[in-house]
Write a protein that binds this DNA or RNA. Sequence first.
DNA 1: AATTGTGAACCTCTTCACAGCT
DNA 2: AGCTGTGAAGAGGTTCACAATT
Lengths: 219, 219
Amino acid sequence: MKKKKSQTISESTLKRLADYLCVLRYLDDQGMETVSSSVLSSMMNITDSQIRKDLSYFGSFGKKGVGYNVKAFIEAIEKIMNLNEKHNVCIVGVGRLGSALLNYKRIKETPFNIVAAFDNDKKKIGKKIGNITVHNIESIDEVCGNIKCEIAVLTVPSYVVHDVYARIVKAPIASLLNFTPIILTGNDDLLVRNMDFVSELKIISYLLKEKDNADKGKG
Amino acid sequence: MKKKKSQTISESTLKRLADYLCVLRYLDDQGMETVSSSVLSSMMNITDSQIRKDLSYFGSFGKKGVGYNVKAFIEAIEKIMNLNEKHNVCIVGVGRLGSALLNYKRIKETPFNIVAAFDNDKKKIGKKIGNITVHNIESIDEVCGNIKCEIAVLTVPSYVVHDVYARIVKAPIASLLNFTPIILTGNDDLLVRNMDFVSELKIISYLLKEKDNADKGKG
DNA sequence: AATTGTGAACCTCTTCACAGCT
DNA sequence: AGCTGTGAAGAGGTTCACAATT
């Protein structure tokens, strides 16, 4: 297994790596021991050479004439994505969505630990949700200073986003997964990824219309 | 305003269109009437020419020397993405996440109507959550035949995904927004988009490590 | 003076195709 | 024979730079 010199990996490759993991987990659960790039690609709507190229950025993990060992493949991606270490996560905003995430039991099977939650509602502060204590949002800087918390998940209502974002920027938090429809950009010290449910519905709306037009064109 | 002949719009452009909408809404709320591509770009970590190029696929919407009228810009994107029509959505899987989506009040401000929910739990079937009736998952074909439902949102536990997916494929549903960690690919009749929370955390894990290495490199 | 819209240049990502290994 | 890994070709996306317009 060769090591490659560092280079920037594209967003698309990164997403596919995460997808490979999902599919490989499924294959592993099914007891499959070996998989070829062409079998994997047929399960995922991508080409086999795409998979091999994605992997080639990081080294070689397969056997010519044979394919990839499923477990070794999983471990390789986990190592690439730094999933062997546990990562602390906090939930900012304990509404219905935040609570749903706090109660997501199968997160225990992942390298992510939810270690804290924050809200501004006095009725919620101090209570426990799924054995995580809800802290006052004003104490986020202090609490995250004590427990090293790499990732904040933002699930607050839109009208407080800018306020809460300002606190997160100041706190010792490295990254933010933003579920709100307010686009955030981050800075050198805070990596941000936006994940808005309604934006995704809007993209579907566009694609359905486009598909409709294409179908009409053919018909 | 020119019309352009149809061409395939990239995933990246599509995502940015949805992002533009989010930012434009914010500017509109702030009472801003006009915005230039450079102001907009500085709010979003992209270049101004990227914005202008994205728009150029669909026509011209700005005034040279002036910029874009915010409201007109919003309306243009809404028209492009087919957001003037209402779209019916159903929630498949009324667990904590599904319930959170069913209770999301501000969806009323969007073109998406949640019109039905499905589950296999007899304790939930027949009950109302946020004035939407929960139906038996077995009746999805029939219920979606009656109410035209374009988009299904999948929020069931992993172990029933394949089962439920088979039902959705057979039902008169055009698209699926999949929140589960089981990657689905769709087919000619069913458009699928995957939106997995944990995969997104994994991507953050990779990016944080990469950033760490870059920071160390700089010293 | 400011800003759009756009062809051309540039760069990045994907696919091809095949040498090389099992 | 089957499949990987990869350089090269091809396709697609982004940025540049400037003419056109207000």
